[in-house]
């Protein structure tokens, strides 16, 4: 008959003791896989990432600089490229602002009020994630295109939506709609309405309550949503491609411009412009990591 040792009762103790006395063989807990298995798994994960993500990313930069720095800068400063960059920035800026406003309003409504049709609204928020971006683009063509429902009326009053900036913005807003809201809704639901009620009872106006209480309480989550929304807005290809019309120097955004260059066998130029998007991705990643650490710490400044 043997009594249980302290180590058998508490595996953590066993590890502690093993570390204290290196001569003793370390006992394994149920979740400690053997050394080899552990590192094999970690290695596979890294190899996978390297092969499928890091390598292509490096390749983008290698290709971009394959004809030297001058060719690189020429490719990103030629007028058509500059116009594509400007257009992408403009579309992203407008879409992000619109989605921030819509996102805040809708998240507020969903998180802080009880009303009929709320669950329907919540499932609607995710619609852009489940619809192919091409369909999203087509929807707007069918609505606002010349053959579309509002097409003749718009044509008669000389308003251009499809194959113009408004169409690009509409398609982008549609595709990036969920990002901000999805960040805000759970946080706002968790925070409830008591702080707002407290502010109102202390004599604050609705506007002051929003600026001083509601917004600061969600600011990191909001920034996080804005970041993801912006990254997607700049990188969006499918929906934008359908509504753009590909007018060079006018309605081509960066992703579309890259595709055209590539199709014309101007690989170096296409990769040069692609480095800008890749750079955006890297900046986004870093900012995302920072914001995640802020959100993790709660909302203290």
């Amino acid at each position: 008959m043997s009594l249980l040792t302290a180590e058998q009762i508490d595996p953590a103790l066993a590890v502690d003791r093993a570390q204290e006395r290196p001569g003793i063989r370390r006992r394994r807990g149920a979740n400690d896989d053997p050394f080899v298995v552990k590192w094999a798994i970690i290695l596979v994960a890294f190899a996978f990432l390297a092969l499928f993500i890091v390598l292509p990313l490096i390749n983008v930069f290698v290709q971009a600089f394959s004809k030297g720095r001058e060719a690189y800068f020429a490719a990103i400063t030629e007028p058509v490229a500059v116009s594509a960059i400007t257009l992408t920035l403009t579309v992203a800026a407008i879409s992000v602002v619109l989605n921030t406003v819509f996102g805040l309003i809708a998240a507020w409504a969903i998180a802080k009020f009880q009303f009929r049709g709320k669950s329907f609204l919540i499932s609607l928020v995710d619609l852009p994630f489940s619809v192919s971006p091409v369909i999203a683009g087509l929807v707007f063509v069918l609505l606002f295109g010349l053959q579309g429902i509002f097409g003749p009326a718009l044509h008669a009053s000389d308003i251009k939506i499809i194959f113009a900036l408004p169409g690009l913005v509409l398609a982008t807003v549609f595709v990036t709609f969920p990002f901000i809201m999805r960040e805000l809704i759970p946080l706002m639901q968790e925070q409830g309405t008591q702080e707002e009620e407290a502010a109102i009872l202390l004599g604050a106006s609705g506007l002051r309550t929003f600026w001083r209480i509601t917004l600061p309480n969600v600011k990191w989550a909001l920034l996080y949503g804005v970041l993801l929304c912006n990254a997607r807005a700049m990188g969006e290809f499918g929906a934008v491609s359908v509504v753009s019309g590909h007018i060079r120097g006018e309605t081509n955004t960066m992703p579309l411009h890259i595709e055209i260059l590539y199709n014309e066998y101007q690989f170096q130029a296409s990769f040069a412009v692609a480095t800008l998007l890749a750079g955006l991705a890297i900046v986004t990643l870093i900012a995302k990591a920072f914001l995640e650490s802020r959100i993790g710490k709660g909302n203290r400044p």
């Binding site: 008591q194 702080e195 009620e197 407290a198 502010a199 009872l201 001083r212 209480i213 600061p216 309480n217 709660g298 909302n299 203290r300 400044p301």
Partner: peptide, 12 residues
Amino acid sequence: GFVFQHYALFRH
């Protein structure tokens, strides 16, 4: 003056 059950202090 209202004191909430969970205080509702402004966290930021």
